[in-house]
Amino acid sequence: MSIRQKLQGQLGFGTAPLGNMFRNIPQAEALATVDAAWEQGIRHFDTAPLYGAGLAELRLGEALAKRKREHYVLSSKVGRVILDEFEDPAARQLGEKGGVFEHGRPNKIVNDYGADATLRSIEDSLKRLKTDHLDIVYVHDVAQDFYGDGWLAQFDIARTGAFRVLDRLRNEGVIKAWGLGVNRVEPLELLLDLNEPQPDAFLLAGRYTLLDHERALQRLMPAAAKRGVDVVVGGPYSSGILAGGTHFEYQKASPEIIAKVEHIKAIAQQHGISVKAAALQFALAHPAVASVIPGASRPERIAEDQAALREQIPAVFWNAMREQNLVAADAPLPGDKE
């Protein structure tokens, strides 16, 4: 069974917001959001230790404890170990994400892509998630946005550590699949070029959206499709700016980005559609994409996502987007099928 089949549909749920991304989310609201996702038919849940220093995993585990494990697909990540020591969350250096989880738990986070840390990370995640297995495990953030010029050194540690451990666990049937979960295209291209254990899937956040997709189109998407590596698109709303928010790339959006979004919004209004619908359906139009996992921290957002997925978008909208250079000329579009 391919990853595409395991994901049980096109829309998943990204739990980064449940780690108190940008704001302190009440526990009841977080749990209600997961329940709303379930009631709306979502059965693909993605999380990570980094999200609030384990907070998102704890909340997801509590919310899903009443569900039968065989009824949903669960992915988490390795590369960070959460300790019982404490630090000020607001002072954490999280690469380009800055203090995005400043409202998370105070537990200290240690970056480690080695073999032993990978096994420990999985064991700790299973405890927080109250489950006995993970379906997909991604190696998290081994890229430039977290390590700058030193990212290749981190990648090499992962290559001889996490990659090989996860490949063995998949072959033993302990996990169903593994891959990389990053915000940059380069690590994914590099892994596809190596004569190393080959991944099953990539979770690519923010790099295949209406606002940023050209680099992924050039080489990554064709190479992934050729290798049979499914792409899961994270962050389809570009940190919220495409869904009515103010953030882009985990920071306040620049005037240039705001102007581009306003341009897209004007075309959408002209054709009577929502920008959120355009963002979701654009990502899913590429044949290499198996699923899209927008995040949410409020229950009502889940129904909005499902409505956006079902919304009818006329081909003339996509034609206008292409003609005004708001999407790449070679980007697959839903309107191309009409």
Rank of each mutant, 00 (worst) to 15 (best):
T209K: 01
L129T: 04
D336T: 08
D149M: 10
G12P: 02
A243P: 02
A243N: 14
D46Q: 10
F155D: 00
R301I: 09
P314T: 04
L194V: 04
P26R: 07
R219P: 05
D135K: 03
G79Q: 03
L58K: 13
E186P: 05
G244T: 05
A225L: 15
R168C: 08
F146N: 09
T131K: 12
K252C: 10
P314F: 03
R92G: 01
T131P: 00
A91Y: 10
I241W: 02
E96P: 02
L188H: 12
R168M: 04
V100W: 11
A158W: 05
R322G: 02
P89S: 09
S274V: 02
T246W: 14
F45S: 06
G19L: 07
A158L: 09
G148E: 10
R164G: 07
G150S: 12
N107F: 14
D145Q: 14
D156I: 07
A56I: 02
K77L: 01
L58R: 14
L309Q: 09
V232W: 09
G52H: 03
P334K: 00
S291C: 15
T246F: 15
A48S: 15
E186T: 02
Q281L: 06
P334N: 04
D145A: 12
E214W: 11
L280F: 06
Q218I: 09
L134C: 07
T15M: 09
S125D: 12
